[in-house]
Amino acid sequence: MTTAATGSRGSTASLRHRLAERGIDSSLWLMVPALVFALALFVYPFSYGIGLTFQPGLATQEKWGGGVLANYVAFFRDPFVFDSVWITMRLALPAALFNVLASIPVALVLRRRFRGKRLMTSILVLPITLGTVLTAQGLLIFAGRQGWLNRALMATGLVDQPVQLVNNYVGVMLSLIITGFPFAFLLVSSYLSGIDPSLESAARTLGAGWWQRFRRITLPLLAPGLATTFILTFVLAFSVFPSARLVGDAMGSTRVMSLMAFRAFGEQNDYPMASTIALMMGVVELAVVALVLAWRALLYKGSTGGKG
């Protein structure tokens, strides 16, 4: 190799040296397709949507005023729209909370090894395949006025009149539990399996009863996982759409934000207003998520002694 060639090699190498130190080299090309995808299908449309929210339609401007902010004025001033925030919260928060809390004892019970555990787990996971639409259809038939559930209740004499279980708040809540619980259960069991059982044995040798072991060992170790589970199930419940329409009371107690957004988008073709509601949906949801994350940051998150 000639001196000149070595010299030129040297200079490129030094640039490479500097880039290498910062972790930049040719393998970063592997990221390009995913980045192009994210920019084209997520970042660009999202920014476009945010831009749209500042271009209110004429009707909105005339009715609510506020110039470029007319969409936001409409969102906060129009009770028909703004109430949907509370309606959504009233559904999503209790549903997520219930799903997480109910998952803890079930996961604790199913943590033990017994035959048929796999079958049990599979049955609990089954609703994931149902999807919201079949769940809605099933609820309408099973829990409707003439469905088996009401028939059984009346046959056992528990009630005289059929109980209204669908086309209202209860129907949507049931649907959220059926679709959300399995998900919460899967997450909680996986967090639980990450806690080394010998920790509980250790607590036992130190004289802790089952409740003390759960309260002082398992629960604190599980808490960050519960927070994550809550966030993910809340996200699922928050964007409830088909069930609110199909088994809920779409113009009343289950008039959730996604329905309002879709009404503006599909029925009124008011894309700016639809984008505004959609964006506010994201804001509200991420606010709850941020709160839970802030709480979670206060918890112990180190090793739990197991594989987790």
């Binding site: 299908l41 997520f42 449309p45 999202f46 476009y48 949507g49 945010i50 749209l52 966030i231 996200v235 928050f238 964007s239 759409f241 934000m257 996604s258 957004a261 879709f262 988008f265 894309y271 639809a274 984008s275 509601i277 959609a278 964006l279 949906m281 994201g282 949801e285 991420l286 998520v289």
Partner: peptide
Amino acid sequence: LMPPITYGIPLAT
């Protein structure tokens, strides 16, 4: 993490 509708509506637009 975001509700699908949040990015879905701008994307559909």
